[in-house]
Computed example of a mutant assay.
Amino acid sequence: MKIGMLTYHNTNNFGGALQTYALQSVINKLGVECQVIDYRSDVISKRYKVKKFFEIRGLKELIKYLINSRSEKKTKLCFDNFYKNYIKHSKDSYDKGNISKTNQLYDKFIVGSDQVWNLSLSGMDYTYFLDFVYENSKKNSYAASFGVSSLEEGESSKIEKLLFDFNNISIREPKPENFININEDKVVNINLDPTFLIKSDEWSSLSKNKNKEKDYILLYTVASNPEIFDFAKELSAKTGCQILYVHHTHKIRFDMNNIRDIGPQEFLGYIKNAKYVVTTSFHGVALSINFKKDFFYALSNSTNNFNSRITNIINLLDLSDRQIINGQNDKINEAIDYESINETLEFEREKSITFLKHIVNETNMEINNVNTINS
């Protein structure tokens, strides 16, 4: 049996790469072959494309290129090696024009996880709602994220129609506020991000450690919140820990150790060995919890933010006291008690894996029935 998995892949994004690895790995462990469909979304590909010199337009882009080009090339090489060694892709690549050919290759499709249903990220690409799949019984999602707490006007009704055809639906956060119920008889499951389905010992075996510091603060930002830098420096002053700032931007911080040319495995190593983690990233939070780290998080101040991804897992595990507000948090000297957190995670992990088992077992039954009829 073969399952085709559709997600944001081949991006130079730590969370995207690691959730892809995790979901494929877990499905494969259930005894089926899972391939990541090499679908090339124009918008997603453009967002992570490394510009060549002849593509530079204007002085501002030239300055960014001169600062970033070497780091970007090293980063891309790290990610390319990770995808080559740890992710099994479909033999062929696809776009909107020919992805319907995959209907002949896979017994089931699973879309997820990550923000695959965030239309502002995908450029209104409904391919991630499996609109190319002919048979409704093949359509499934796992922990698909909208990334927002409400939908734009006009989006909800179209999404409702597309999801009405799904066989099994799993999302990562509660439905957006203005999301119309798909069908009274259709259950919408809420499951963990795939990175939680893999335990810390397996992540540790995958990680690489490039850092020589014993005690350090890992600062990892993806959203706009300048107060997080003030907090990290305060934490550094109070603990004596050096700040290692992981990012892919051209904005160098001269008061911190900038790390800009690593891949997913090195990122895991930096989180695993950190004394503290300070982040605005959902996967920064998720992996900190997985490695049982003392972490602090800040939410984005921008109007169009994706904070719901973080607040959902924070509320589930009762960790809101780790939020940085106005550059402050009074829990600096308090370690996180992970006993009850681990109990909740284990319960949710089993529930999530049971959902994936249901898809696999359902598919096996269908194949056996077809074989019986044809025999």
Rank of each mutant, 00 (worst) to 15 (best):
S41I: 00
I243N: 02
L59P: 12
E339W: 05
G147Q: 05
N290D: 04
E202Y: 03
E266W: 00
S149W: 10
R349F: 02
N168Y: 00
K214P: 00
R70L: 13
I37T: 02
Y297T: 12
S281I: 02
R309T: 12
S41A: 07
F196P: 00
F231C: 15
R322A: 15
E55G: 04
N225M: 01
V36M: 15
I367Q: 12
N273K: 14
D193F: 03
I44P: 07
L121P: 07
V246Y: 03
K49Q: 08
R47E: 15
F295L: 13
L162M: 04
E343A: 13
N257A: 12
N364S: 08
N178H: 02
L356Q: 05
H9E: 07
L163V: 04
D42S: 13
P174A: 03
N315K: 15
H358F: 10
V278S: 04
F166S: 10
M1I: 10
Y106I: 01
L162G: 11
S69P: 00
E350P: 00
Y142G: 04
K331E: 15
S207F: 08
T127Q: 05
L206M: 15
F254I: 13
K49L: 05
S340Y: 08
G263M: 11
Y86W: 11
G147L: 03
F291T: 06
F53R: 10
E72C: 06
F229V: 14
L162T: 05
K60W: 12
L219P: 09
S302W: 01
K161V: 10
T311N: 06
D337E: 15
Y142P: 03
K199P: 07
T239R: 01
F53G: 07
Q104L: 09
N333D: 15
E160P: 03
N211K: 11
D230M: 09
